[in-house]
Nucleic acid binder design. Sequence first.
DNA 1: GACCTGCTGCGGGCTG
Length: 753
Amino acid sequence: MKRFPPFHDRYPKEIVDCIDSKGWQTFTGIQEAAITTLPTNPGTALPDAILEAETSSGKTEAVFLPLLAWLSGKRRDDAKGFSLLYISPLRALINDQVGRIGPLAQTIGLDVHRWHSGVGKTEKDRARRQRKGILLTTPESIEGFFLRIAHENPEIEAISKVSAVVIDELHAFFDTARGRHLQSLLHRLDLLAGRKIPRLGLSATLSDIDKVAREVLRPKSDVPIEFLRPQKNARKIKIGLKVFIAPDKEDASTKGKKSSPLPLNDQFAKELMKDFRRDARGLVFCNSRGGVDLLQERASTISESSGLTFEAHHSSIPNSKKELIERKMRNEVPDPPKQMVVICTNTLELGIDIGQVQRVVQIDPTFSVAALRQRVGRSGRRGDQGAEGMIYVGERELTADAHPLDQLRIKTFQAIATTQLSLEGSFEEPNHADLHLSTLYHQVISVLREGRPKTTQQLHQLLVLGGPWHAAPELKDEAFFARFLETMTEMRLSLVERVSDDEWRLSTSEEIPRPAYAVFSTPPEYTVYFNGQPIGHLPMTISYRVGDTFVLANGRWRVLNVSDHNRSLTVAKAASAGAPRYGGAAQTPSGLVAARMRAIYRGEKSYTMERDETAAQMVKDGRKAFKKFGLDKNRFLDHGRDVVLFPWCGSRRAQTLVLLLRREGMKASIENFAIAIEAASANDVKTLLAEIKRQPLPEADELAREARQLQADRFDRYLIPYHQRLAYGRRFLARDGVKELVEELLTADAAAA
DNA sequence: GACCTGCTGCGGGCTG
């Protein structure tokens, strides 16, 4: 490899030799940045750091080369203790990384141990015995180590000895219950170690990283954080747009009619054949599992004997099948397909190794800018190849009574807005207001499970004042926190009890259920069997009867037998079938995207992306409809007996507006990028809004009374209603700027009149 | 009209 003096001159010979033998031409930008910046002399303390670069830009080596060089100079004694802790949000990523980190670590005599639920006993026993080297694991397994503390668990002790923690795919922990969980675990590890263990996060460029990642990596940090990013120019990204028109009704009566277009999935499948005709490997992202199954079925049928293979990859496909697909993509099977396209959900959004992909197609727009950027970024990664993405949008054939949202061609504008923002590098801001009370509940129990009773003050200091909940204003108040603990003793399932006035311990009076390791939960699933073999999973929240049909995992099936007790569905092949139903809630629009869509409708933002003729026509039509409805001036639209209101804001303010209207007796709900109000006129709504404007805004927890579903996270059901409403308000509502929004809605309309 | 992620413990069957 080309000589890179900061590496070849400063790094230990064993490590240099190992890298030279890999046949790499040069280091990537992020690797050069890390090698130049991070200390290799154990006399210099390791900093907290964030390495920011795209998936598969060699971030793993970028962080491990300096860490291993640093460790090689450190005197090692015989005492048990791991050297490094690597944390990944995915088991699959750990399995990939063993192969990359293992040989590097071997050069300085360190073993690498995997530890997650898919790792066998033999391998875990080896890690348990050695308690040295590098441990690769998940947040939930770390929770497991903590939960076993009470039973004299030497592993957690050995983990607390590490010189640094590496967190892979740090962006996957932004703004989530799981992220807060990880912060708590790392904080508890620091306390156990009696020092601040350096944290190094690997992140994609998906937000204002300096601000966001700092808070995620180490809340309330008083030590500086190094930000490392490539010096070299970012590679080129191209995103194109194609729009397809769906027939008005996709049923038998329209089939064969000349004037009627083909069903959407047939059009998509044909286009995929064209777009991927020259590529060896491709990825297609859908917004739902059902969408993946249907499109894969159509594409497989249409492409038969063309040499192009289509595979389905989502969470309901068995792991063994998914792993086989990933191996085929990497050409690790005998006689791999020459041309292969995987149709997936966000299962392949994070950095699981799937080799080199030439092109990415997104079916219908994503709801966040970050998702689009991350997905397109999975293409053309080696060398200087730019990323190439294409969005296929399905719009509906317009009828005389078409809904305004269809006339506005909303999906086309959503696709353009997400593309523009993605290319500009503007991403959604995480919601820092989130209280994460469900996760707090989990961590109180986890801390108490360690054994000794704790006082209110101790718990408050550990989790709130000095810990990951430091930024929640309500919780800072010790009385509020004490009340939270007290409610935990009052619930039907009370896992906590008072020892004395001010001391708490894990309940002893009841049978304590098995500990929960994850802060999220998954609904129970049927396993679908064909000929005794599991072919996939379906959620039990949807009921099935004998004779029902569905498409799943590259086949059409008919239900032969349903067993709720065994959680199994037995199926036979069927001649035809529709998409499986998975259930779920509507997707929520982001304010960033909404505001940009409005600008494009108004012609304030041109769009320069590559598009087909239909897309160009859709933009013309959408803008024309926007004018026709007068939406350039006002925000209300009477549609039949209902009103459609266009706030052009993010989902939190929109949801606040919806609850305000419901509180006054209106049947309001969010519908795509608009608010639909049933059985009301624009004038009714305006009168109400004027009234709302005059009154003081209710508190968020008060408004939350109007919400249909208060429970969102795993342990919300164990919280008292007041805490549930508080958590709901902080997560889904925003009072800031709502008065201004109401004002804007009324003035815009007055100006128009 | 949504997507994804994780854990243990136990028992049965197979291999050496």
